[in-house]
Computed example of a mutant assay.
Amino acid sequence: MEHLRITTAREGDVGALVGLISSLFQEDAGVRDPHTNLSWPADHARGHFLGLLDKDDALCLVARSGGEIVGYLAGYGRGPYALRPVRVAELQSMYVRKAERGQGVGTRLVEGFLVWARDRDAEQVSVTAYAANERAIHFYERMGFEPRNVSLELGL
């Protein structure tokens, strides 16, 4: 994609980030998890993103094309802990607008996150995706991620 720039999000980007995470919720959790609060982005995403921007152990990247934000990635560092003594960079969420998918935007966002993780001495990078989101799983596997955990649920 021509003229694609990956930058660290700024406070002025938060409105666009709220719109993108709202789309993520509708397209992903909205069709895969009947228990997700789909109004969370409208109610909480602004504060969530502003909080990420203020933390040293968090990162929010935006993908800009032609001056417009077309995707984002949010993540943070955690650990080490006594039980699991490794430093982990957790890719919390990522979304690329439909029109820009398949053009390397997601790859560039993840590459930026991996640089950030290495710079912070992370020993592992992790991401969680719905098992039914085969496109996301395939993308992350192409980026080098390997399946490690399986969550099983039983609705009562």
Score class of each variant (00 low, 15 high):
residue 136 A to S: 15
residue 128 T to C: 07
residue 84 R to M: 05
residue 111 E to G: 14
residue 89 A to L: 05
residue 130 Y to C: 01
residue 112 G to A: 14
residue 133 N to T: 05
residue 146 E to C: 12
residue 98 K to F: 09
residue 100 E to M: 13
residue 88 V to C: 07
residue 132 A to E: 12
residue 141 E to H: 08
residue 93 S to E: 15
residue 55 K to H: 04
residue 60 C to A: 13
residue 90 E to T: 10
residue 105 V to S: 12
residue 70 V to M: 02
residue 63 A to H: 12
residue 103 Q to S: 11
residue 124 Q to G: 02
residue 115 V to R: 15
residue 148 R to A: 12
residue 63 A to C: 13
residue 81 Y to E: 07
residue 121 D to K: 13
residue 85 P to M: 00
residue 91 L to H: 14
residue 94 M to K: 06
residue 113 F to D: 00
residue 121 D to C: 08
residue 86 V to K: 14
residue 87 R to C: 02
residue 107 T to E: 13
residue 79 G to C: 01
residue 111 E to H: 15
residue 91 L to Y: 14
residue 58 A to I: 04
residue 51 G to V: 04
residue 144 G to H: 10
residue 107 T to A: 12
residue 111 E to A: 15
residue 117 A to Y: 03
residue 145 F to W: 06
residue 133 N to V: 04
residue 122 A to D: 03
residue 109 L to D: 04
residue 126 S to N: 02
residue 64 R to A: 13
residue 96 V to A: 00
residue 122 A to M: 05
residue 96 V to F: 08
residue 107 T to D: 11
residue 149 N to T: 15
residue 100 E to T: 12
residue 82 A to K: 08
residue 114 L to P: 12
residue 109 L to T: 03
residue 148 R to P: 05
residue 137 I to A: 06
residue 64 R to L: 14
residue 131 A to V: 03
residue 103 Q to K: 15
residue 127 V to T: 00
residue 118 R to P: 00
residue 67 G to S: 02
residue 101 R to D: 03
residue 114 L to W: 13
residue 129 A to C: 10
residue 87 R to S: 05
residue 148 R to N: 10
residue 138 H to S: 08
residue 131 A to Q: 02
residue 110 V to N: 02
residue 125 V to G: 02
residue 107 T to H: 11
residue 121 D to R: 13
residue 139 F to P: 01
residue 126 S to V: 00
residue 115 V to F: 09
residue 84 R to L: 09
residue 149 N to W: 09
residue 105 V to A: 06
residue 84 R to H: 06
residue 118 R to K: 14
residue 60 C to T: 15
residue 130 Y to H: 01
residue 73 L to A: 02
residue 137 I to W: 15
residue 135 R to L: 05
residue 79 G to A: 06
residue 122 A to T: 02
residue 97 R to Q: 05
residue 136 A to K: 03
residue 132 A to T: 09
residue 147 P to Q: 08
residue 90 E to G: 08
residue 84 R to N: 01
residue 68 E to T: 13
residue 52 L to M: 07
residue 76 Y to V: 11
residue 66 G to F: 11
residue 137 I to P: 12
residue 69 I to R: 06
residue 102 G to H: 02
residue 144 G to K: 09
residue 118 R to S: 14
residue 76 Y to R: 05
residue 124 Q to T: 08
residue 120 R to F: 03
residue 145 F to L: 07
